[in-house]
Structure formats: C-alpha cells, structure tokens
C-alpha cells in the first residue's frame, strides 16, 4: 500500500521536470511559408518568460501551438510532462485546464456579463455550488481590481478593463500557467502599468508560470526572467533581459535597441532601386 503510493509519487516526480513547457524541433508551415523552422524552447516552471520578436513572426501562433489549437508539422511540444500530440480530445481538455490564456482582444463573451464571463470556466469544469462560484468570481475580480464592475456587460468596459476581466477569467480555475498574447498593445501607460503589476503579482504570489508574447521591449524586459527572441522562424537569441541587452549579436542588438535598419532590413525585398526607377515599363 505504502509502496504503491510512494512509487506513484516517484513516477510523477520523474515527469515533473524543471520546465513546464519543452519545445523540441518545432516546425510549422502556413501554406508553403515556414513560420517556425526547427526551434527549441524551454519555459521554466514558475518563471516569467518573454517571447519577443518583430511583428508577423508568428508569436501568437506559438501560443496556439502550446494550447494545441494548432498542430505542428514536425517536432514535439511537451506541457507538464505530457506530449500534446499523444492526447485524446478529452485528455486535451484536462490539459488545457492547466493553462489560462489571455487573448489580445480580451475575447470576453459578449453575450455574458462580467460576472458570468469569469464564472464561465467554473460552471463548465466544476460542480461548485452557486455561492462558492460567486465567492470565487468576486475574489478573482478583486485580484484584478474590478470587483465593482461585476454587473457590467463587456461592451461597457474600456480596453484595459476588459483585458483585466479576461485575466480574471483566465485564472478562474487556478491554472499553472498563463499565456499572455500581446497584453500591452494599445494600452495607455496607466493600464499598461497595472497589467505589468498584475502579471508580476500573479507570478510571485501564486507561482504561476507565465509566457508573455509581446514586442513591447521595455515592459517585457522589466518583468521577464528569460527572454526568447524570434525572427524569421528561428530563435535568434535567448537569456536574461540583461544578457540580451548586452548581446553582441547584430540581429539581437537591432531589436533590443530598436534600430530601424540592420540585419532585419527596413526595406521589403525589392529589385534594384535605380533600375526600378529608370525602367520605362511597369
């Protein structure tokens, strides 16, 4: 009896590596264009990981791959010791409960109130009583500072507020990891500060592993433990924010210091400028 329990624990301990997410040899095509070409990535448990890169490099696609809303063409993604490719549909939904995702637009359900939006995952996945659900929802809303807005409809919220409500919804089931898709885009400085603070608080107080996909250099660098820089379907650099800022790699330098031209060219690929201008027929 004792043996079986301890061996079970050992087994789960073996599965529990230091990395919550391990990506190996990931290749993903959209049409004939390779979005990711054989990339490796580790998301350490309990850390804040920033994934950065120029717009259009498929950072959001990466989050969808980790949530298995998309399937990779090659390579494996292991989340919490489970290879996503092996999961049945039902197992996948169990696995997804460990992940919360904050979408770029917030993605609140427009036909439900703020309260019902946060209660939605609880109603689906738990058999909690109505009073318990009420308490949890108000706690989560309190955590993002919007307990007073519980009765509003999503259309009555500002952009920053709806993102915070979406965050409350994402953490309703106490996930082990939250993925943030461009959380800082289109926010005023105050809302941005609030969000940065929330991400930090959730990570430190609850130990939630966080993945932040962003191209807002300053905010991401201020909270991330590790930064991955992606360009042209490859990881071009990784490390702590300090390491990245002092990197000597030309491409990393260009992004981290915001230079307009460099290895990532300012110009879209084109024919020779002079001959283009002088050629008679277009």
């Amino acid at each position: 009896m004792m043996n079986s329990i301890s061996s079970g624990e050992q087994h789960s301990n073996e599965n529990r590596t230091d990395n919550f997410v391990e990506i190996r040899g990931l290749t993903f095509y959209r049409g004939s264009r390779a979005i990711f070409n054989n990339i490796d990535m580790d998301i350490p448990r309990g850390k804040v990981v920033g994934i950065m890169g120029p717009s259009g490099t498929g950072k959001t696609t990466l989050l969808r791959l980790i949530g298995r809303q998309l399937l990779p063409d090659r390579g494996s993604i292991v989340v919490d010791g489970q290879d996503l490719a092996d999961l049945t549909r039902d197992q996948l939904f169990v696995q997804r409960r460990k992940m919360g995702m904050l979408f770029q637009s917030g993605a609140l359900f427009t036909d439900l109130s703020v309260f019902e939006n946060v209660a939605f995952p609880l109603r689906i996945h738990s058999q909690l009583s109505e009073t318990m659900i009420r308490d949890i929802v108000l706690m989560k809303l309190h955590a993002v500072g919007l307990r007073g807005a519980w009765s509003l409809m999503p259309s009555e919220l500002s952009g920053g507020m709806s993102r915070r409500v979406a965050l409350a919804r994402a953490i309703a089931l106490d996930p082990e990891m939250v993925m943030y898709d461009e959380p800082f885009v289109g926010q005023d400085p105050i809302a941005m500060g609030v969000l940065v603070e929330l991400v930090r608080k959730l990570n430190q107080a609850l130990g939630i592993t966080s993945i932040i996909v962003s191209h807002d250099l300053h905010e991401t660098a201020s909270i991330a433990d590790v930064i991955y820089l992606i360009a042209d379907g490859e990881v071009i650099g990784s490390g702590t924010p300090e390491e990245m800022l002092s990197s000597t790699d030309a491409r990393v330098c260009q992004f981290m210091q915001g230079l307009p031209d460099g290895p990532v060219p300012f110009h879209f690929p084109a024919d020779d400028y002079q001959s283009d201008l002088l050629s008679p027929g277009v």
Partner: peptide, 12 residues
C-alpha cells in the same frame, strides 16, 4: 474577437 478560441482554451 477570439471568443471561439478562448472558449476552446477554457476547454469548451
């Protein structure tokens, strides 16, 4: 507005 995706991520 990604409501369908987020529903999927919530497990519905």
């Amino acid at each position: 507005t990604e409501q369908l995706s987020s529903m999927e991520m919530i497990g519905v």
